[in-house]
Computed example of a mutant assay.
Amino acid sequence: MSVERDLQSRLGPLVERQALRHGLYTPIEGLMVARFVSPSEPLATVQHPVYSVVIQGTKQALIGDQVVRYNAGNSLVAGVDLPVSSHIVEASSERPYLSVSLALDYSIIYDLLGDQPAPPAAHNVTPFEVRPFDLSLSDPLVRMLELLDHPQDIPVLAPLITREITWRLLQGPFSNLLRQLSRPEGNIARIARATKWIRDNYAEPLRVADLAEQVNMSVASFHRHFKNITTVSPLQFQKQARLHLARRRLLEAEGIGQVAYEVGYESLSQFNRDYRKLYGLPPREDVANLRQELQLAPATP
């Protein structure tokens, strides 16, 4: 059986059922399922470190100045937080676009690598790669998706399956990328720690000098490598991270004013301006459109 057929026969029905049941974000932390029944407009977001598999359809992403296109049977690893503009290219009601994604946890990667010697530094490492799907990941992904039908088992079994998936990624086609990103002294790893700090402390004031010191870089070197790797400045990254989180919370039917304040905005009008500039529409209209694309029920007042 081909990789694509294996994905569509084993994972396709599970992803479709769970996407219709839960929407994009599932009750398992870090596990996302996507189902689109038509091509979409470009969507700007901050892509967190993630492993993602396209099961059916086609997606295209603009990461910096690189266009990345991945079809059914392709998988992607993004090793650091990256601003991404992506859209669904191929999808229909008869053959929806289907994908499953799992957030990468570097604490698990560090633990699994243990005392293994770090690989020699590579100078041509990019923070993301697209590879053919590794069939050894079929079984753990199926078990993870089936776990959503047994919520009482999630706290115990989800961490174990996540660890298994991470281990298989470290043994498969993404091994070199993940091991290079795990080099604590490497520039990409340092910037990854910085973007994680911004993401985890999104509502805090950003002091670039303090963050540069935290990752053991000079301010000039930090600015240069941050822009080279993420394609934006630290302050731009923080703004996009705040707006991405706000969009997710609005999708879950939280109030606009409350969300704007909680992600670090002091002015609702400024939040609305920044949101519209990034997503092309005011918050309420954008979220309504996104809910329709994802076939979610309308948000309650």
Rank of each mutant, 00 (worst) to 15 (best):
L31Y: 02
L14R: 07
V219Y: 13
P205Q: 08
R163Q: 06
Y202Q: 02
A192I: 04
I229C: 00
L294D: 00
H87P: 12
R143C: 06
P117R: 06
L170M: 11
A121Q: 11
P27C: 04
L137I: 14
S52D: 08
R5Y: 11
S269E: 07
A203L: 02
V142C: 01
V263W: 01
I165V: 12
V53D: 03
L211P: 01
V15P: 06
P298T: 02
H223S: 11
M217K: 07
E129N: 05
G64D: 01
Q56R: 15
R21P: 07
R242W: 04
Y106L: 05
I198F: 00
V125T: 07
N74M: 14
N124V: 07
V89K: 05
Q214S: 10
L296Y: 08
S93D: 14
L245R: 15
I165C: 03
A260G: 07
A19W: 03
I161F: 07
L250M: 12
L147M: 06
G64Q: 02
R242D: 01
Q47F: 13
A189I: 09
L296K: 09
V84I: 15
Y97P: 03
P159N: 06
D139L: 08
A34I: 13
P39H: 07
Y70W: 15
V89E: 03
A72C: 01
F174E: 06
I191Y: 12
T162K: 12
V208P: 06
V77D: 00
Y106R: 05
A118Y: 14
T166W: 04
L278H: 00
Y51S: 01
T45W: 14
S136V: 07
S269M: 09
T126M: 13
I229Q: 00
V142D: 01
L290C: 02
V84S: 02
D65I: 12
A189K: 10
L43Q: 13
E266D: 13
W197N: 04
T166Y: 09
A118C: 10
P282M: 10
V219E: 10
S9N: 14
L11E: 09
E213Y: 13
A260L: 10
P151N: 00
E262A: 08
V53K: 08
S9K: 15
F226G: 03
F36P: 05
L20F: 14
Q236M: 09
V80L: 13
D65V: 13
S107P: 05
D286R: 15
L141K: 03
F128E: 03
M32D: 02
